[in-house]
Write a protein that binds this DNA or RNA. Structure first.
Lengths: 312, 312
DNA sequence: TGGCAGCCTTAATTTTTCTGACCCTAGATT
DNA sequence: AATCTAGGGTCAGAAAAATTAAGGCTGCCA
C-alpha cells in the first residue's frame, strides 16, 4: 500500500461536462454536437462516470437515453456549476481582450446582413475588433466563446426585424412575369434550411400557384447570387435582400408579402455591462444603419407593387 | 471556409482547473500536487490558456510565479465556479452511494486512532461502509472525493483532543530509567514528519536532557511498534498511544507532558446533512468511544508503574 | 415488409496529454 | 565564492482520450 504514488483523482471534469450536456439536451448525440466531439466520446465519458460512481446515470432505451432518478437529481447542480464556469470564462475573455467582440450568426446573415454594415461599424468603433463566426445553429452562449448571437427565431426579445418573405428575381426576369401564376414557368430556387419558404408564401395567395422546384442551395447567399444572375425566382427574406433591392440587382415582382412569426434577433446570454465593447456593438447593430446611401430602387415588374425600399 | 468541420472549442476545462489551483495556491508546484499531476503539465496548461487568451495570467519570476492583474481578477470567479462543481460532485457521490463514507487521514491516525475504533463503529452503524485513505497532507475537501478529514492542526473547531506529547517506552526499558536525564543513554526514536517532538518536550523540563538521536521512521505506527519491541524511547502522542498505554504494551515513564497548540481535528468542508451517513459517522467519532473498557491508565514515574499485562 | 434514418455502442487508429529526467535561474547557505 | 535548494521550463517517449468507421437496435414510412 504505497502512500505517495496513488493519486486520488477526482471525478474527471470532461466527463462531468459530457454528463451535464447530455442530461440537459436529452441525448448523447446532441451533447456531442454542443461540445464539438463525436457521440462515441460522450458514450465513453458517461460510461466512465457511471463506473466510478457505481450507479447508472442514464437508462438506455432503444430510442436514445433517459435520465435515471440519480441523474435527474444531479443535473441542476451541474448545470448551475457549469453556468458559473461559463460566466467566469466569459469575464476572463472580456478582461483579456476588452476591445474584441465575437459574434455567432448564420452564414446567410453574415454575408447579407452583417457584412454590408461592417464598413460603417468599423468607422463608428474603430478600436473594436469584430470577429464573426458562421454557424448553422445558435450556440449555447453560456458555454461558447461568443459575445453575441444573431439568428432567426421566434423570441420577440431583442428582435431587430420581423422575417418578411416574398419572391424576388432579377429585373430582366421580372419583366417576363405577368402575375403569380407565371411562377410555374420559372425555376424556384430554395435554401436547404428554409425549404418551406415557397409553400408558406404561396399559401397566402387566394389562388396558390404551382411551384416549379428549382435548385436547392445550402448557402442562401449563393442562391441570392444565382437569382441575380437570372437563374429563377427565390423567396427573399427582407432583412437579407433589402440591399439587393435597394440597388436594383433584385426586384420584388409581386405585392404579396408574408410576415413569419420569427424574426431576426440579436441577443446575449451574459449581462452586457454598459460601456463594454459587446454592448457598444449590440447597441449599434440595433440602430442598424445600412450604410448604402443609394436611392430607393428601381423596380421593374408587371405590376410594380410598393417600392420595396425601406427608409432608415 | 468550411462551415461544418470547424469546432469552436471553448477554453479547456482542465487548463482552467490548473489555472485556478495555481492561482489559489500561489505556484505551479503546489497546484500540481493538489491536482495529482506533474508541474510540467501545469506549465503546459497555463501556457495554452495564456496563448488562447492572448494575455499572460502569471508573471514568471525566478522564484515562482505571481498573478498578473488579469489573473487576480479572474481567480475569484473560477474558485467559486469550481467550488460549486465540487459541491455538485459531492452531492452526486452521496446520492449514488448514500451509505458510504470516505475519510482522509494521516497514516498514523488511521492505524493508531481510527483502526481501534472501527470494530465498535461497524457494530454501531452496520449498514455504512467506511473507506479510509491515508494521506500525508489534508486534502482540499472541496475538490477531493472525501467526506471527512481527520488530521492534526491548530484550528480549534471540530477538535477531538489536544495533542499532548510525552515520552513512552516498553515497560522493560522503563524499569532501567531513573529520571529524564537517563534519556541520553537510550535511542530516541522519532517520526520524520514530527521531528521536533523531542525538542518540544525537552524544552519543557527545568533541566533539558540531551537527546540521543535514534532511528527516524516515516510511519509513526512503525515507530510505535519498534518502541513496544524495546528499541528505545519515543515521543508519544496521547491520542495515538493511549491504547498501548491502556493495555500496558507501552508506559509513560515521566510525568512531564506537553500540550501542543494543535490538536486532533475532524472536519468536513461540505455541509453534512443531518441523517446523512457522513454526519452519523462524524457524530459517532466525536463521542469517540474507545472500545476497550480498560482503566484510564498509568502515568509514570521512573519506577515502572502498572504491571504489564491487563487483559481486555 | 423492407428500406431508411436516428441513436447509441464498439473496435482499431490517430491525436493529444502526461510523465520523467533533464536544464536553467536566482536567492539562501557554507 | 562555491554550493545548495526551490521553483519553472523543455523534450522524448508512454499513457490516455478522441476520431473514424462499422454495427446493432428500433420505429417510421412507403
Amino acid at each position: 500500500m504505497p502512500v505517495a504514488p496513488p493519486r486520488p483523482k477526482d471525478l474527471p471534469l470532461t466527463a462531468l461536462r459530457a454528463f451535464e450536456a447530455a442530461a440537459r439536451l436529452g441525448g448523447f448525440a446532441a451533447a456531442a454536437q454542443e461540445l464539438g466531439v463525436t457521440p462515441g466520446a460522450i458514450t465513453a465519458h458517461i460510461k466512465q462516470l457511471e463506473h466510478s460512481l457505481g450507479a447508472p446515470l442514464f437508462a438506455r432505451t432503444p430510442r436514445g437515453v433517459r435520465l435515471t432518478t440519480l441523474g435527474q437529481q444531479a443535473l441542476p447542480n451541474f448545470t448551475h456549476a457549469f453556468d458559473a464556469l461559463g460566466t467566469a470564462i466569459g469575464d476572463l475573455r472580456a478582461a483579456a481582450a476588452p476591445r474584441t467582440v465575437h459574434i455567432a450568426t448564420l452564414p446567410a446573415i453574415a454575408q447579407l446582413w452583417l457584412s454590408p454594415r461592417l464598413p460603417a461599424l468599423r468607422v463608428a468603433a474603430p478600436d473594436i475588433t469584430i470577429s464573426i463566426t458562421a454557424l448553422e445553429q445558435p450556440p449555447n452562449l453560456k458555454r461558447s466563446p461568443y459575445d453575441l448571437s444573431l439568428f432567426f427565431d421566434d423570441t420577440p426579445q431583442g428582435r431587430l426585424a420581423p422575417d418578411v418573405i416574398f419572391p424576388v428575381c432579377a429585373p430582366a426576369l421580372a419583366a417576363r412575369l405577368n402575375g403569380p401564376q407565371d411562377i410555374s414557368r420559372f425555376p424556384c430556387l430554395s435554401d436547404a434550411t428554409w425549404s418551406e419558404d415557397w409553400a408558406l408564401w404561396a399559401q397566402s395567395l387566394p389562388d396558390p400557384p404551382a411551384i416549379a422546384r428549382g435548385p436547392t442551395f445550402s448557402l442562401y447567399a449563393l442562391a441570392v447570387e444565382e437569382t441575380v444572375n437570372g437563374a429563377g425566382l427565390l423567396i427573399g427574406h427582407e432583412s437579407l435582400v433589402s440591399g439587393h433591392l435597394a440597388d436594383g440587382r433584385l426586384v420584388a415582382p409581386f405585392a404579396s408579402r408574408v410576415t413569419l412569426p420569427r424574426g431576426l434577433r440579436l441577443w446575449s446570454d451574459r449581462p452586457l455591462r454598459p460601456g463594454s465593447a459587446a454592448r457598444l456593438i449590440a447597441d449599434w447593430l440595433r440602430r442598424a444603419p445600412l450604410a448604402s446611401p443609394s436611392p430607393p430602387v428601381t423596380q421593374g415588374a408587371c405590376k410594380p407593387p410598393p417600392p420595396t425600399a425601406p427608409a432608415p
